[in-house]
Design a protein around this nucleic acid. Structure first.
Lengths: 195, 195
DNA sequence: TATGGATCCATA
DNA sequence: TATGGATCCATA
């Protein structure tokens, strides 16, 4: 999958550290590891067909697996009840990453969760990964997406400079290309996994 | 329906004004106007049956109708693309109310929407109405509820004292009583519901 | 029981 | 097309 943009909302200086360089590299490599169809060398998505009845769209559940998997390989801890993944940095401060392909409203909760984590001193910073609008158009309806989150960014940028709020960014991802011959990513509980 | 609690998160002094007294009265009367079954003198809810397959629960869509209707009668404006209802106060500042029976994550978005409205100066304050956990237990699964929102309140209380942030509260509501002989509130066909 | 999510609906 | 919502799912 293709990394699109990195929107920094809060940065107390962490963004220029070596620790950050490592976080950034892990996340970019995690995004790059996402492939479709299984075994492909990139992420080629079958376009949604909104005229079909019922509409044909790609499901989202399997998408993040390769991402989370790579982070785990890189030493990140996966604890579903906290954040998708977090890494304890040399200074002893956990840094969290949330991959958000739930409903757009769930992205609001994820941002608030990162904010609360910083407010309570449980994490020093975090990143939310969401689809661009161009990717969103082909996935399950109403999935989190940057375009819709964008007008709320000023609310979260207010945290910049507050004690405990070390770093916060929204990272966007997109398909490498559309391919009408690719299979749709299965939806629902049929349990398909990316390799 | 029964008013349960009024949790004030932000108050720049609005809470002691005559305008606030009017807002409060309208909201309390709006809550009181919610009845079940239709035509009843109170809100008597059939208990959810979580052992049945599929689970039997009450839908939420019709619940807020009487509330919103009463506010409209009291001069509040209903504009679905902004807030459920808002009232322009003598000072010229709109005050917003959101009735939240969407998913709990949608309650996070609603709080952020109120915050953004104050940040941008479009409203002077707002109120979010959500079910208590006791009401939540009998409604569509994962509906917004106070218990689950509670740990995030410190995040929104941080807005207190900030310019533009006049007033913010979370108001909770609950059934008057459970009644096994009452009909279930009908559900829609959203999400994964079978048609 | 508790929490994060995934999916489809309604309407402007 | 855009936004808020409503409904079940998976799993600890």
């Amino acid at each position: 999958m293709r990394f699109s943009d990195w929107h920094v909302l809060v940065d107390n200086g962490f963004g220029v550290t070596a620790e950050f360089a490592r976080v950034r590299r892990d996340i970019l490599e995690g995004i790059d590891a996402i492939r479709w169809p299984p075994g492909a060398h990139d992420f080629a998505l079958r376009p949604a067909d909104l005229r079909a009845r019922p509409q044909q769209r790609n499901g989202v559940k399997p998408i993040k697996e390769a991402f989370v998997s790579l982070l785990a390989d890189r030493g990140w801890r996966l604890e579903h009840d906290l954040f998708d993944a977090h890494l304890t940095l040399p200074g002893g401060v956990p840094f969290a990453v949330e991959w958000e392909t739930g409903n757009i409203s769930s992205s609001h909760r994820a941002m608030n969760r990162l904010g609360l984590g910083m407010h309570e001193g449980r994490i020093g910073g975090g990143i939310l990964v969401v689809p661009t609008r161009a990717l969103y158009a082909h996935l399950t309806d109403r999935i989190g997406n940057f375009a819709e989150l964008e007008r709320y960014l000023p609310l979260w940028e207010r945290w910049d400079g507050e004690p405990g709020f070390g770093y916060l960014a929204v990272v966007t991802v997109e398909q490498d290309r559309l391919d009408p011959t690719a299979p749709y990513i299965p939806r629902g509980t049929d349990g398909l996994a990316l390799p």
